[in-house]
Computed example of a mutant assay.
Amino acid sequence: MNQHILMIEDDSRLAQMVGTYLGQSGYGFAHAGDGRTGLDAVQATVPDLVILDLMLPDMDGLEVCRRIRTLEGARAQTPILMLTAKGDPMDRIIGLEIGADDYLPKPFEPRELLARIRAVLRRRADPTPSSTQMLRFGSLEIDGDARTVHLGDKPCELTSYQFDLLLALARRAGRVLTREQIMEAVRGRELEAFDRSIDVHMGRIRAAIEDDARNPKRILTVRGVGYVFAKQQD
């Protein structure tokens, strides 16, 4: 069965172009022209990925992203690729912080959009392998099979990519990793341009798993190098 892409975008000409290109590449495609219609489509169809424009006529893309992440079941985990205005890093940072998996500035080349879609879907279909399926660090529990994280009895909400980043660090607890090593561990394939946003994802992970994200005890920054996951925790 073809993977199904939903594009929430008010520019119908752009959506038609993207739909034609993705259709030629073997993807199913649907288009919603505003946020409310898009949310209804996510509820009804559970797409494999959502391409979400930041600027919509009825609500902004950030609000749509927030609402998708509060839906029940698999819908809340739907990968989201956000389209942002070129040269506006704050929108991209906020989008990643509230749960977008990737971003792409407008205008964009269709080939780059396709590459990013494939990368996000590949991470979902082929997650980071784990030789130790259940990892425990004090009150933090990471289940590699179920792809869930709990801090005590509280579930930690992470995107698929953020889970993979956390798992890659946790499996190498005590070892300082550069950003490039972390990304290579997650993918084991070619690096992608958006990986410069890894620091934003780390901030999101800390907000989910740390008792105090401003004073982290689990994921530590090694200035000028990268990150280390602490072996000894509470």
Rank of each mutant, 00 (worst) to 15 (best):
G224E: 11
G23C: 05
A207L: 13
G99R: 05
A76R: 12
A170P: 08
V120D: 01
G226M: 14
L151N: 14
F163M: 00
F229W: 10
G226C: 12
D10V: 09
H201A: 15
R13N: 14
V149E: 10
D164W: 01
R75Q: 12
G38S: 13
S131Q: 13
I182L: 14
R67D: 03
T70M: 14
I182R: 06
D143N: 14
A125Q: 05
R136Y: 01
G188C: 01
K231Y: 00
L81A: 10
L158V: 03
L39V: 15
F108L: 09
L165V: 15
V176W: 06
M202F: 12
L6R: 03
V50N: 07
A74T: 10
T37W: 00
S130K: 00
C65D: 03
T78G: 01
Q16T: 13
D48K: 07
R196E: 15
G87I: 03
V120G: 02
Q24H: 04
R124W: 00
L165I: 15
A146S: 09
V176D: 08
V222H: 05
V200Y: 04
A41L: 10
D164P: 02
A168I: 01
T45Q: 14
L114V: 03
L169T: 02
R118N: 10
D199T: 15
R111L: 13
P57D: 04
G99H: 03
L158E: 04
K231T: 05
V50D: 08
T159M: 02
I205H: 14
L96H: 10
